[in-house]
Structures are given as structure tokens and as C-alpha cells.
């Protein structure tokens, strides 16, 4: 009986009862919307600006995948002795070989990195040293044209670069050979900074 009377009261229609119901409905909607805006706003949003402040920390906490030459040369002592003395000392180990963390993870070796050989070496070397690409500043890098360079040095044109130039210290053995053979021409200059 009681419920019936409440229902009758709710459903009775004055000339403006529908307007009242609409206004109540809109207010409920607004309160609900405002509440969900507060509830669902992510934590730390707005602490530093209109963004999730924690996102800065999440970005900062990402793990690097590439390391530095020093990290590689900690183990690779032979390369360390050669690489740091030669003209390639500024070349990144990981550029030619791949990412550190594809090789070492938590002090354990997890994979073997690429060592370029043969024709791949030529492609890799020419990536920087190709004279045909004229956009390279000449004071920053020594460039050669192939096969003219090979012909000039009187070696077979099938030679790959690393047959004369040790990749980690490209001029070391060349200059040594010249010294031994008492070839008089100037020792090659180092263009790198």
C-alpha cells in the first residue's frame, strides 16, 4: 500500500511534473559525470601540469638497449688496445655489431652479435668512405672511390677493405707495412676530430 502511494505520487502528472523530472535527471547526470571525472582521473594527473606526472618517471625508468664503447671494451681487451688508438676510435662498437643487450643481459651472454665479412664489409665501409657521395665534409672523413683506390694501390680489384685495413684501426698495419717496406709517402693523416 505504501509503495503504491509513493508510486502514485511519482507518476501523478501536474502541468510541470515532467519538467521537474527532467531537471532532476539532468542534475543526477551532471553529478554522476563530475564524480566519474574525479574517480577515473589517473593518479598523479595534474601534479606537475596537465599530464600524468608519473609518466616522467616511467619514461626515465626505461632500460637502455644500447650501451657505450667502454661497456663493450671492458671484456674485449684485444679490440680495446687497437680500437682506442686508431682512427676508428669514435666509431661505435654497436653500430657495426648490434645492441649490447642483445649480447649481454644480467652479466650473462645471451646472444652472439654480427661480425661482418667479405662483401658485407665493403658495403659497411662504403657507408662512410664512398667518395661518390659528395655531401660528406672532406675534413671530417677520408673517402675513396672504388675500384680506383684498389687499382692505385696495385691490388686486385676483388680485394675487400679489411684485407689491408684492420677494421678497428684502419691505418695501423698499413702504416706499419709502409715503414717496413720503406715506402716514402706521407703517413696517412687522421681526419677525425
Amino acid at each position: 500500500m505504501h509503495i503504491q502511494s509513493v508510486r502514485r505520487y511519482l507518476l501523478q502528472s501536474n502541468h510541470n511534473s515532467h519538467v521537474k523530472r527532467i531537471i532532476v535527471g539532468l542534475l543526477v547526470l551532471a553529478v554522476f559525470g563530475f564524480a566519474s571525472k574525479l574517480i577515473f582521473a589517473p593518479a598523479t594527473f595534474g601534479d606537475l601540469g596537465h599530464y600524468r606526472a608519473k609518466a616522467i618517471l616511467e619514461e626515465a625508468n626505461l632500460e637502455p638497449r644500447l650501451m657505450t664503447n667502454e661497456s663493450c671494451l671492458t671484456c674485449h681487451q684485444h679490440e680495446k688496445r687497437k680500437h682506442l688508438k686508431g682512427t676508428h676510435k669514435t666509431v661505435s662498437c654497436e653500430f657495426c655489431h648490434g645492441a649490447y643487450f642483445d649480447h649481454i643481459l644480467d652479466d650473462k651472454k645471451i646472444g652472439t652479435l654480427d661480425v661482418k665479412k667479405g662483401e658485407e664489409i665493403r658495403v659497411l665501409c662504403l657507408r662512410c668512405h664512398n667518395k661518390e657521395i659528395q655531401a660528406r665534409p672532406t675534413d671530417k672523413i677520408k673517402t675513396v672511390a672504388l675500384p680506383q683506390h684498389l687499382e692505385e694501390k696495385r691490388v686486385r680489384t676483388t680485394h675487400t677493405c679489411d684485407q689491408c685495413h684492420y677494421v678497428h684501426a684502419p691505418l695501423e698495419y698499413v702504416n706499419l707495412a709502409k715503414k717496413m717496406m720503406r715506402i716514402k709517402d706521407e703517413p696517412e693523416k687522421e681526419p677525425c676530430p
Binding site: L10, L11, S13, N14, H15, N16, S17, H18, R21, I22
Partner: peptide, 19 residues
């Protein structure tokens, strides 16, 4: 859709018209 109101008196419709 009629918000449970079946009141279509001239008074009610005049209010509606304004709204």
C-alpha cells in the same frame, strides 16, 4: 519518453512552448 506525465492541459503546453 513522456516522463510519465500525461498532462497535456493548456497550462502545461504553454510551458512546453516556452521551453
Amino acid at each position: 519518453l513522456s516522463f510519465g506525465s500525461d498532462n497535456v492541459t493548456p497550462e502545461s503546453l504553454a510551458l512546453d512552448k516556452k521551453i
